[in-house]
Amino acid sequence: MERTDIVTKLTPIFKKVFNDDSIIITDGLTANDVANWDSLSHMLLIAEVETGFAIKFKLKDLNKMRNVGDMIDIISSKL
C-alpha cells in the first residue's frame, strides 16, 4: 500500500477518535497539535488503527511513534 493510501485510510479513523472533522494528516502531525490527543485517546487510536488495517502493533512500536509519519512507516512495514 502506498503512503497516500495509508493516509486516506487513516483520516476517518483520526476524525472519529479525536471527534474532529477538520484534522488533516501530515507526517509531522503530533499529539501536541490535536486538542483531544492525550494518553487515553492515543490507545483508542492504536486499537482503531489495528482493526482498520488488520495489523498488530508491538509495545516497542508505540515507543517509536514520535509523530504520524513514524506511525505510517510502522503501519506500512506491517502490511
Binding site: 494518553s39 490507545m43 492504536i46 486499537a47 489495528e50 502493533f57 509495545l59 508505540l62
Partner: peptide, 17 residues
Amino acid sequence: VYTPLSFAFRKYRVRGI
C-alpha cells in the same frame, strides 16, 4: 505502567483504558 497495561487491554477499548 499505564501504557503497557492499556496496550494489553486495548481490545476492550474504553473499558480497558
